[in-house]
């Protein structure tokens, strides 16, 4: 799948922002006043930047309000509604907290629940795709939720954060091992795609056109896969190992928290790039991918 920068930025920044909202809602820091407002503003800014970035992905961003109507069937629609509900609840919570020093446990818990629901909806957009076997797994929402919960804990340098990061790393490794074989296990082959029996060794003789097309650019994307193991390792080191070690070994302070957060975010960007770049869509079979080459 084409790793569109707007979607990578969206899922990474909004995931981190919603993770921070979760921990702020659950009372991760004891701060009050301007400091509390600043932390809340950072979380809101991350989510807002992510959502704005996702709008750039659309052909008609001005019609985005229509996307809130089909929550009965569409995970994308549910994600839109959940994200707006989360931001509204969190703004009320942070206003009461930062300005009036009233920390409402009920509003905070509701924020946390809504934020995690939003991340779950985001992940389900990918996990529901039977056409992309690598994504079509319960591990997709698990890793998205772990990334949000672990990433959201890093800025607060809580004792729990390094262990959540290691849990995230474990989840990502298990998911990568599963994903590696997912296409083969899906049972979709050129034989099932064309009805030509597998024993007859069907293969592409001529593509439908000599140039490229939308489908090939969007779903038959193959660039950047050769160095995937190297990138995956680098992503794990940046997203999990460095912040976990830093948080475990150094005294906590703003500088340490910022360094760990930046390293974690950079790593998640690399891993999210791979999430798209390594995902293979079954339509590639019609264009000679995954099959016997001539």
């Amino acid at each position: 799948m084409h790793p569109a920068p707007s979607i990578i930025i969206f899922t990474v920044l909004s995931g981190l922002g919603f993770g921070m909202m979760t921990w702020l809602g659950l009372g991760a820091t004891a701060t009050e006043g301007p400091e509390a407002l600043t932390l809340c503003a950072i979380a809101i800014a991350l989510v807002a930047a992510g959502l704005l970035s996702s709008l750039f992905h659309l052909g008609h961003p001005e019609r985005f309000l229509k996307a809130l109507t089909q929550w009965r069937s569409s995970w994308l629609s549910r994600e839109g509604i959940a994200s707006i509900a989360t931001i509204a609840t969190f703004m009320l919570f942070s206003g009461l907290w930062g300005v009036f020093s009233i920390r409402s446990a009920a509003l905070g818990t509701l924020t946390a629940l809504l934020a995690l629901t939003t991340v779950f909806c985001t992940a389900m957009i990918y996990a529901q795709m039977k056409t992309v076997p690598r994504w079509h797994s319960p591990l997709t929402p698990v890793t998205f939720l772990l990334a949000a919960v672990a990433g959201g804990a890093v800025p607060f340098a809580k004792h729990l954060a390094p262990w959540l990061l290691l849990l995230l790393g474990t989840g990502l490794v298990i998911d990568a091992l599963r994903g590696h074989l997912a296409f083969q296990r899906s049972g979709t082959t050129l034989a099932s795609a064309t009805g030509l029996a597998p024993g007859r060794r069907p293969r592409l003789l001529a593509p439908p056109h000599t140039g490229s097309n939308y489908l090939m650019r969007e779903m038959v994307y193959t660039a950047g896969r050769t160095n995937a193991p190297l990138l995956f390792g680098a992503g794990l080191v940046l997203a999990v190992l460095i912040p976990a070690l830093v948080l475990l070994s150094l005294q906590t302070g703003p500088a340490v928290a910022i360094f760990a957060t930046v390293s974690h975010t950079a790593g998640v960007i690399v891993l999210r790039y791979l999430f798209f770049a390594q995902a293979e869509h079954v339509v590639g079979l019609y264009y000679g991918r995954h099959g016997e080459k001539i």
Binding site: R63, I125, M129, T131, T188, V283, Y286
Partner: peptide, 16 residues
């Protein structure tokens, strides 16, 4: 008139 051009339906279609 209602399409926002998100491209999700193209992802969901196995046939391109």
């Amino acid at each position: 008139d209602d399409c926002i051009g998100c491209g999700l339906c193209a992802w969901a279609c196995p046939y391109g």
